[in-house]
Amino acid sequence: MDLQALRAARRRSLAPRHALLAVPLAMIAIVTAGDLLVPPDVHLGPFLAAAPAVTASFAGPRTTGFIGAVAVLAQVVVAMVRGSVTDLNHTFQIITLLLISVFVTLFAHLREVHEKQLVQLRSVAEAAQQVVLRPLRERLGPLRIASVYLAAAADAQIGGDLYAAARTSHGTRLIIGDVRGKGLDAVGDAALVLGAFRAAAHQEADLPGLVEYLERAVAPELDQAHQSSVGFDDHSEAFITAALIDIPDLGHAVQLVNCGHPSPLLLRGGRVIPLEVDHPAPPLGLSGLAESQLTPQGFPFEPGDILLLYTDGVLEARDEAGGFYPLAERAAAWRGTGPRALLSHLRDDLLAHTPTGTLGDDAAMVAIERLPTPTPLQKGAPRP
């Protein structure tokens, strides 16, 4: 969604606000009529200050100023009908109401400026998402792909989770990862990993070579950034979990190297099969802390199967009782077709699982479906 679309959405949201103008106008009418009917020693004029105050809660400065002017005019009319505008009591009521109207109009102006800043920040976040976390193509070779990203940070569209796909001469390679932390620092680390993946996915012949390249590319940067933020004695908290997948166009298998990331799920015929590797590698940035066994492991991936990749933000979403989101059970209960429908169902179900409809951590999901391989055309047969 670009800036113009956000502004159009904001204009649509203003339509109900205009209907709310009947509330302060009705307040002015009721208070004015009551002030004219009650005995002279009873003054209801101070209640008129509620009209511009209520208006400032939902309208802009122009509308708030207009309601304030109407309230002041109503107080002047009451003063003229009941006696004189120069009466000391009415004079103080008019001056006080005028000052309150000016103050609340100023507050409405500041709120409108803040809303414009939020619109611009959302636009910048969307632009950053398009640059750093590029949308995945719906079709890559014999694969149909869908993705969804849910950022935990308020007013943000991107955080520390990442995913990307690249076509090679023999198939498709994908990565999904999770940077430790949130905010701008996590976005920078995610951009670093994605840039290294896009640069090397076409060059490295196998997954172990690609993982080693990513480690060499991101480890020094992560270590330097961590040292500058927490000092030189602690190197244990700068890392990125990732799962790298190679799906050849020919054959019915998938190769997986898991670097400390949650195991992908394979959906087949109503069953959910976790793809757990025998020798997982440590997260990126921690190669100096453990021996890395970069051995890809193969799993069957038949036509019609759906491979679900996700980050731990999905699993760590809690309900009101503190229970984690049962991703495998919810995926097994799904009876739709296609990766896009699967992610739409899981996204809605995940947000409904949380009490407030928001997540405590960034969450990303990618669904890949292998389509049936077309039969090669016979020699001399007409092309469709």
Rank of each mutant, 00 (worst) to 15 (best):
247 I>C: 08
247 I>F: 07
248 P>N: 10
248 P>G: 10
248 P>D: 12
248 P>W: 08
248 P>T: 11
248 P>E: 11
249 D>Q: 13
249 D>R: 09
250 L>C: 11
250 L>R: 15
250 L>G: 12
250 L>E: 13
250 L>H: 13
251 G>I: 08
251 G>L: 08
252 H>T: 14
253 A>C: 13
254 V>L: 12
254 V>M: 09
254 V>R: 04
254 V>D: 12
254 V>A: 05
255 Q>W: 10
256 L>S: 05
257 V>D: 04
257 V>G: 04
258 N>K: 00
258 N>D: 14
258 N>A: 04
258 N>C: 07
259 C>A: 10
259 C>W: 01
260 G>I: 09
260 G>V: 10
260 G>S: 07
260 G>H: 08
260 G>M: 08
261 H>V: 04
261 H>R: 06
261 H>G: 00
262 P>R: 01
263 S>K: 05
263 S>N: 14
263 S>L: 05
263 S>A: 15
264 P>Q: 04
264 P>N: 07
265 L>N: 07
265 L>S: 05
265 L>R: 00
265 L>A: 01
265 L>C: 04
266 L>N: 00
266 L>M: 07
267 L>C: 06
267 L>M: 13
267 L>V: 09
268 R>S: 08
268 R>C: 00
268 R>Q: 02
269 G>D: 14
270 G>N: 12
271 R>P: 03
271 R>N: 11
271 R>Q: 15
271 R>Y: 04
271 R>C: 02
273 I>H: 14
273 I>E: 13
273 I>M: 12
274 P>V: 01
274 P>Y: 03
274 P>N: 01
275 L>R: 01
275 L>M: 10
275 L>H: 02
277 V>T: 15
277 V>K: 07
280 P>D: 11
280 P>I: 01
280 P>A: 06
280 P>K: 02
281 A>E: 08
282 P>M: 02
282 P>E: 07
283 P>R: 03
284 L>D: 10
284 L>T: 03
285 G>M: 01
287 S>V: 11
287 S>G: 11
288 G>H: 14
288 G>I: 01
289 L>Y: 13
289 L>M: 15
289 L>Q: 15
289 L>T: 14
290 A>G: 06
290 A>K: 08
290 A>P: 06
290 A>I: 12
290 A>W: 13
290 A>Q: 14
291 E>H: 11
291 E>F: 07
291 E>R: 13
292 S>F: 00
292 S>A: 15
293 Q>D: 12
294 L>Y: 07
294 L>I: 01
294 L>F: 02
295 T>F: 10
295 T>L: 14
296 P>F: 09
296 P>R: 08
296 P>D: 10
297 Q>F: 00
297 Q>D: 06
298 G>N: 13
298 G>V: 13
298 G>S: 15
299 F>I: 02
